[in-house]
Simulated scan of single mutants.
Amino acid sequence: MATSTAATAAMVGPGSSIARVLAATDNPSTRLDPLRHRFGVNYTPSHNWWFCWNDWDSDPIRRDLDAIAALGADHLRILLIWAFFQPNPKWVSPAHLERLDQLVTLMGERHLDALVTVFTGQLSGWYFLPPFRRQSDGFFTDPMTLAAQELFVGELGRTLSRHDNLIGFDQGNEINTCWEAKLEVGDAWMKRMFAQMNATLPGRLHVNGVDHKPWFADDTFSPKALVADQVMPVMHCYPFWTGAVKYGGAMDPPSVKLLAAMAALIRSYAGTQQKPVWAGEFNTCIKELTDEQQAEWLDKAVHAAIEQGVSWFSYWDSHDVDRKYDFNPLEYTLGLLTNDGKVKPAGRVFKQLAETYRGKPVVFPTATLPPPPSPHTLDSSWRWILDWLGWKGKA
């Protein structure tokens, strides 16, 4: 690990954000090293979904975490629901903070690290807006809302600061799908929020887990700011939602090499192939695939991404969703585990990938990348990706 840390600092320079993250930790570990592969999942509680924040029962959570750890995962992305945690701009629920503290403790007992989302107003197609915040651009500029955000981050920081198994904050779950703004407004808010998060929890790795749209077209945050303000930019890769399925089948390059291609697209904005990239959410969301086909896609997609130097992988998601809840039909069968904890074919593939690559050095590609797409539109971005793939199939 000491060799990896030194290599990281040498690669990015002593004044870089990566070097500051590693230097700020007394005993740096692989949880903060973007040059070593990591494998984790987005946690979806099997019992009462994320409504469990309001109906807390730690016993099924313990069982979930045991099953996730048995698959070889080393971290979880856990989704806070902003409206549950902060129902008033001047008050954060102590009961919910205690439950978060307990969850991260339970994770630590199983050697699972935590990435904690913050402003999650949209999750799996449902909106969870605090009573004091409408779905509008005021999220990024309204003084009362900004003060509430500052309070929330501060309270979360006090709760989480004692945990060694904390990776850091994710600013939210795909914030741009809930609150939109002009690029300059979104970029300014992101920079402000990263500064606050770094002050509240220094020496951690904080990210902004946007969906795919800002990478493909103008949408709230600019690609240049996303790569400049993050040690390791995050990409959410779904062949169905990105439109990859328009250009080929589920096992064709636009789908199985989507993670690799989006990493190249991100690095084109960074201007270097040495930029670490985190696949923060990925799955097909192609409901026609069998469990065996989904497992095949996972194996091919991750291997292609590793060949292109993608650093960390966080699969969506851990468990299938209980069908007693009303969700988009695509949401019910995305897990590595069934709702009652049985390992699915994709879970077996995930375990093999994690055991094979976890902790191994990331090898970045050396080929020269073309300049970023121009104009920054969905069509031109897809043309860029298809050209990069050399794919002349369905279009």
Rank of each mutant, 00 (worst) to 15 (best):
G249E: 05
D326V: 13
R383I: 11
I78F: 04
M107Y: 05
A367Y: 11
R133W: 00
R110N: 11
G15P: 04
P329R: 09
S58K: 08
E180C: 06
L76P: 05
R62Y: 05
S268G: 07
L103Y: 03
E288G: 09
S124M: 04
M251D: 12
V363L: 13
S255P: 00
S374G: 06
Y357F: 14
L330W: 14
W189T: 12
E150R: 13
R99T: 08
V104L: 04
T356E: 15
S161L: 14
W382C: 02
Y43L: 10
R323I: 07
K224M: 05
V302E: 10
H75M: 15
N208A: 13
Q294F: 00
E174H: 01
S29A: 10
V118S: 06
I385R: 03
F85Q: 04
D340G: 09
Q352H: 15
Q273Y: 02
W384G: 03
Q149M: 08
A148W: 02
G121I: 01
N48T: 14
I167Y: 01
L146S: 04
R63W: 10
S17P: 07
P372N: 07
D320M: 08
V234S: 01
F282P: 12
Y43H: 08
S318P: 00
K392Y: 00
Y269R: 05
F39Q: 02
D299Q: 05
V92L: 00
E174G: 00
S93W: 01
P34D: 05
L336Q: 06
A264Q: 07
T159D: 08
S16I: 15
G172E: 06
G393C: 05
L112Y: 13
D33E: 15
G154K: 06
P361T: 13
G209Q: 09
V41I: 15
W278S: 08
L259F: 01
P361S: 12
F364L: 13
L265D: 07
Q294Y: 00
N48A: 14
E331Y: 06
F327T: 02
I78E: 01
T145E: 00
D59K: 11
E184I: 11
L76N: 08
E292A: 14
T8S: 10
A395Q: 10
V210K: 01
R267T: 10
V92E: 02
Y357M: 07
M262G: 08
T333S: 12
A263T: 13
L80N: 07
I78N: 01
H319Q: 11
D218W: 09
P233Y: 03
E281Y: 00
L76T: 07
V153K: 02
L258G: 03
L353Y: 13
